[in-house]
C-alpha cells in the first residue's frame, strides 16, 4: 500500500478544467517534486488532496491516503486528517500566519486540535518546535506576533506548524518562492532535514527546477492540468522526453547554471 495514491484527479471550475486526470503516487518517506509553470494546476492538485479547494470546485477521480478514499468525504470526516496526516507549508509566510495571533498559539494549534493539549502544554510544545526549526530565542519568539519576524523566520514558523502534529505526509507549496536566495537555501536544508528526521513523505511543489532537483529524487512535470512526464529526477534532467520538459531544463541551465554568461 502506497501512502498517497492519486488517480485520474480532475478539478473543474464551471466549464474550465484546471486539473485533468492527474496520477501521482507517493510511498511512506518518499519525496516527490511537482514542477510546472504557474497556472499548471500544481497547487490545486495539492489542495484537492486534502479537500481544501474553494467552494465551487468540482472534483472527480480518486485520492487514497493510507489506503482510504478521501474524495467525497464530508468536511468533518476529513478535518482530523489535516495537520495530523497531511501537513501543509504555504508559499507566502506572512499571509499564511494570523496577524493577531501569537506565534506560539499558531504553532501549537494543530496540537490543541489533534492531541487535545491544554493552552499551556501547547505553548511549551510550541517553544520546543520553534527550537527545532532553528528559531532564535524560542521562549521569546513564541510570544511574538508574525509582523515582528523576518520572512525566513516566518517560514520556519510555517514549517513548525506543518510538522507539529507529526504528519506522515508534508505538502510544501512553493515554500521558498517568496524568500531571497540565501534564505531559500537554509529553508530547503531545514525542510529536508526535518522530513528525514520525522520519516515523513514530502510532496514538494515548485516552478523552479533547480530547487526541486535539490530536494527530491523523483519528479513529476505538470503542464495545463496534466502530468506530462514523471520519473527519477536525474533521468528527467539528463534525458527529458517531453518537449516541455526540455524547455524547462534548457531554461534552468540558461538562468542558473551558467554564471559566466550573466552580464557583469
Amino acid at each position: 500500500m502506497r501512502l498517497l495514491e492519486v488517480e485520474d484527479l480532475t478539478v473543474r471550475f464551471g466549464d474550465s478544467t484546471v486539473v485533468a486526470g492527474v496520477r501521482l503516487s507517493l510511498g511512506a518517506g518518499e519525496r516527490l517534486g511537482l514542477i510546472g509553470e504557474s497556472g499548471s494546476g500544481k497547487t490545486l492538485t495539492a489542495l484537492a488532496v486534502a479537500g481544501l479547494l474553494p467552494p465551487g470546485a468540482a472534483v472527480t477521480g480518486s485520492v487514497r491516503f493510507e489506503g482510504s478514499e478521501l474524495l467525497g468525504r464530508r468536511e468533518r470526516a476529513i478535518a482530523p486528517l489535516r495537520g495530523a496526516g497531511i501537513g501543509f507549508v504555504f508559499q507566502e509566510p506572512l499571509t499564511a500566519l494570523n496577524p493577531l495571533m501569537r506565534i506560539g498559539a499558531q504553532i501549537g494549534e494543530p496540537l490543541r486540535i489533534h492531541r487535545g493539549l491544554s493552552r499551556r502544554a501547547a505553548r511549551g510544545a510550541a517553544a520546543e518546535l520553534a527550537a527545532r526549526v532553528g528559531l532564535p530565542d524560542p521562549e521569546r519568539i513564541v510570544r511574538a506576533y508574525p509582523h515582528q519576524l523576518s520572512g525566513g523566520q516566518r517560514q520556519r514558523v510555517g514549517i513548525a506548524i506543518a510538522i507539529a502534529a507529526r504528519p506522515a505526509l508534508i505538502v510544501a507549496d512553493e515554500p521558498t518562492t517568496a524568500l531571497d536566495v540565501t534564505v531559500q537555501a537554509e529553508i530547503l536544508r531545514l525542510l529536508t532535514a526535518l522530513v528525514e528526521e520525522e520519516g515523513s513523505a514530502l510532496l514538494f511543489i515548485s516552478h523552479d527546477l533547480a530547487v526541486v532537483a535539490q530536494v527530491s529524487r523523483r519528479l513529476a512535470v505538470m503542464r495545463a492540468g496534466r502530468v506530462v512526464e514523471e520519473g527519477p529526477t536525474l533521468d528527467v534532467l539528463r534525458d527529458p522526453r517531453e518537449p516541455y520538459t526540455r524547455q524547462l531544463v534548457a531554461a534552468a541551465r540558461a538562468t542558473s547554471w551558467n554564471p559566466q554568461e550573466t552580464p557583469s
Binding site: 468536511e75 468533518r76 478535518a79 486528517l81 501537513g87 499571509t95 499564511a96 494570523n98 486540535i113
Partner: peptide
C-alpha cells in the same frame, strides 16, 4: 491565506470563527 492555513492544520468551522475570523 491564514484561514486556509488553519484549515490545513485541521481547524474546524467553530475554531476558524472564534480564533481567526472574529479577532481579525
Amino acid at each position: 491565506d491564514y484561514v486556509l492555513a488553519a484549515r490545513a492544520g485541521g481547524a474546524g468551522t467553530w475554531r476558524i470563527l472564534y480564533a481567526h475570523v472574529l479577532p481579525n
